[in-house]
Deep mutational scan, measured.
Amino acid sequence: KTVEVNGVKYDFDNPEQAREMAERIAKSLGLQVRLEGDTFKIE
């Protein structure tokens, strides 16, 4: 899975870890996480 923030992509081998990281980043920035294919987009 991939986490994308402001056009910057971070790859994770563990999908659960990617989801947790995406949620943590989104919460700290006051944004939403949206799953698009294999990418968690933070917008």
Rank of each mutant, 00 (worst) to 15 (best):
S28V: 10
N14K: 08
G37C: 15
M21P: 00
E20W: 07
A22C: 09
T39V: 13
E43I: 13
A26I: 04
K9Q: 09
K27D: 09
V3D: 01
K27F: 04
F12N: 00
K27W: 04
K1T: 13
A18T: 01
Y10W: 10
F12Y: 09
I25K: 00
A18L: 07
K9C: 15
N6E: 07
A22K: 01
D38Q: 04
V8C: 15
L29N: 04
G37D: 11
K9N: 06
L35T: 06
Q17W: 10
P15I: 12
R24C: 15
K1V: 12
A18M: 04
S28Y: 14
D13M: 11
G30V: 00
K27T: 10
E43K: 05
Q17G: 06
R19V: 04
V8E: 08
K1D: 02
K41D: 05
G30Y: 00
K1N: 10
E36I: 12
G37W: 02
D38T: 07
G37I: 02
Q32F: 09
G7S: 04
Q17D: 13
E36V: 14
M21I: 10
L31D: 02
L35A: 06
K9H: 07
K41G: 02
T39Y: 06
V33C: 15
D13W: 05
D13R: 06
Y10E: 01
R34N: 05
D38N: 10
T2M: 09
G7K: 05
K9G: 04
L31E: 04
Q32G: 07
E36Q: 07
S28K: 14
E4D: 08
M21E: 08
L35R: 06
Y10H: 08
N6T: 03
E23G: 06
F40S: 06
T2Y: 14
V8K: 11
K27L: 09
G37R: 02
T2D: 03
N14H: 08
G30Q: 06
Q17F: 08
L31R: 05
M21T: 09
F12V: 04
E23L: 10
K1S: 11
G30L: 03
T2E: 04
E20C: 15
E4V: 13
L31N: 01
S28I: 14
L29V: 04
K1A: 13
R24L: 10
N6A: 09
V8R: 12
Q32D: 08
G30T: 00
R19K: 12
E43G: 13
K27H: 10
T2P: 05
Q17M: 12
E16A: 13
S28D: 12
E23T: 07
A18W: 06
G37E: 08
V3G: 01
A22F: 06
R24A: 11
I25D: 01
E20H: 10
G37M: 03
G7H: 05
G30P: 00
K41A: 04
E36M: 06
Y10S: 03
M21F: 15
N14S: 13
E23S: 08
V3I: 10
T2N: 07
R24I: 10
D13Q: 11
V8T: 09
L31S: 07
L29R: 05
V8M: 09
I42T: 05
K1E: 02
S28W: 14
N6F: 15
D11S: 14
T2K: 12
E16R: 12
R34D: 04
Q32P: 09
A22D: 01
L35V: 12
R19I: 06
L35M: 11
M21A: 12
E36L: 07
E16Q: 13
L31T: 06
Q32W: 03
K41Y: 15
K1I: 12
Q17A: 13
I42S: 03
K1G: 08
K9Y: 07
D38K: 03
N6C: 15
K41T: 07
I42F: 10
R34F: 11
L35C: 15
P15W: 12
D11M: 14
Q17Y: 08
N6G: 12
M21N: 05
E4T: 09
R24K: 13
R19P: 00
A22S: 03
E16H: 10
D11A: 14
A18V: 03
A22W: 05
T2A: 12
E20Q: 13
K1Q: 06
D38V: 01
D13H: 08
V5R: 01
T2R: 13
D11Q: 14
A18I: 05
G37V: 02
E4Y: 10
V8I: 12
R19E: 04
V5E: 02
T2C: 15
N6S: 06
K1L: 11
N14T: 14
G30M: 03
Q32K: 13
L31Y: 10
G7C: 14
F12S: 00
V5D: 03
V5L: 11
G7V: 03
P15N: 08
S28F: 13
E36T: 05
T39F: 05
E43T: 11
D13I: 09
V3T: 00
V8H: 11
K41M: 12
E36P: 02
L35K: 08
V33Y: 10
D11H: 15
V8G: 03
I25A: 04
E36A: 07
A26N: 01
K41Q: 08
L29Y: 05
Y10A: 03
S28G: 07
E36Y: 09
N6I: 06
D11W: 15
F40G: 06
L31Q: 07
R19Y: 10
T39W: 05
F40A: 06
F40I: 13
E23K: 07
D38A: 03
R19H: 06
K9V: 11
V33D: 00
T39M: 09
A22V: 07
A26W: 03
A26R: 01
Q32C: 15
T39S: 09
E16P: 02
N14V: 07
E20N: 09
G30D: 05
Y10T: 07
E4S: 10
P15L: 11
V33H: 01
N14G: 07
K1P: 07
T2S: 14
D38R: 03
E20L: 11
I42H: 03
E23M: 11
N6V: 04
E4N: 06
V33N: 00
A22E: 00
Y10R: 06
Q32A: 12
